[in-house]
């Protein structure tokens, strides 16, 4: 006879069941979408020349994998990761500077709002002239798109740190540096990682836009080339690879978050 589960085991088992159910539904959605797409193009309801199809994309992937697909992926990943890291590091440094100087924060506020609203893609020609028609321009474009958002989100989070906790540290005689390292930064870890997740998408937008403009390699280059010669299989395949890259970066950010949180619980 099966032993009845303890309340604890029942609770843990319910969590596991829910996780499995969510994953199963996600898989069903993806498989149904792919199957429906394949079926509709096979039956001629959708034109595969315009919409491509999963089987045609798979064929294209096999062909491209034997050619230079990996090279294009590598270029895009390198540009995205470089742009992403530069955007985060510069954004963090600027946000820290603005927190340490409320006067500078007040001066910078309207400029940041205007820069955030500006469509950075409009700066494309200027960036190309300044940084040259190569990878540097693409990385600058990625940084331009993600930097201001990072600064705004982080400096907003720093300023919104719980005032009661702030006064508590002040009552111990903490100086500004101590308040930042022991309270403001650890308090804003969720804000930082929230901003990193948004930046993955923004950096990819910057890189692809940059590759549209100047590149001779990368997934953005492939998409532009394939679009011009009506190779929709290649366009769709590149878009799906971009999705996989975004997912991998999202997963990596989550992993780093876990490590940082563990470190904070030990060291701050």
């Amino acid at each position: 006879m099966k032993t009845p589960l303890s309340p604890r085991e029942e609770y843990l088992s319910a969590i596991k069941r829910r996780k499995t159910a969510v994953l199963a539904v996600q898989l069903v959605i993806v498989i149904s979408f792919v199957a429906l797409w394949e079926l509709m193009t096979a039956k001629g309801i959708m034109d595969p020349f315009i919409f491509s199809s999963p089987s045609r994309m798979l064929d294209m992937l096999v062909v491209m994998a034997q050619s230079d697909l990996l090279w294009h992926i590598l270029i895009t990943v390198l540009e995205t990761v470089t742009g992403f890291l530069l955007g985060v590091v510069l954004g963090l440094i600027i946000a820290i500077g603005l927190w340490f100087s409320p006067f500078a924060n007040s001066v910078a506020a309207p400029f940041l709002v205007v820069l955030n609203s500006l469509p950075k893609i409009a700066l494309g020609p200027v960036i190309i002239v300044w940084a040259g028609a190569g990878a540097a321009s693409i990385i600058v474009m990625a940084v331009a798109i993600s930097l201001i958002v990072t600064v705004l989100e982080l400096s907003g989070g720093f300023v919104a740190t719980d005032k009661k906790l702030l006064i508590t540290l002040q009552s111990f005689g903490a100086d500004k540096k101590q308040i930042f390292t022991k309270l403001v930064m650890p308090y804003n870890i969720p804000v930082l990682f929230g901003s990193l997740k948004v930046n993955i998408g923004l950096s990819l937008v910057g890189v692809i836009a940059g590759e549209f403009l100047v590149s001779k390699a990368g997934l953005g280059y492939l998409i532009v080339y394939a679009g011009q010669v009506f190779r929709m299989d290649l366009v769709m395949m590149s878009v799906i690879i971009l999705g996989v890259i975004a997912f991998a970066m999202y997963w990596a950010v989550n992993l780093v978050r876990q490590i940082v949180e563990r470190k904070i619980n030990h060291d701050t």
Partner: peptide, 19 residues
């Protein structure tokens, strides 16, 4: 006003650390 990411012990010694 305890810091939620610090253990009880680390909260208790927070003032000592700062000073």
């Amino acid at each position: 006003n305890l810091l939620p990411w610090r253990s009880i012990y680390k909260n208790v010694v927070l003032g000592l650390e700062i000073q």
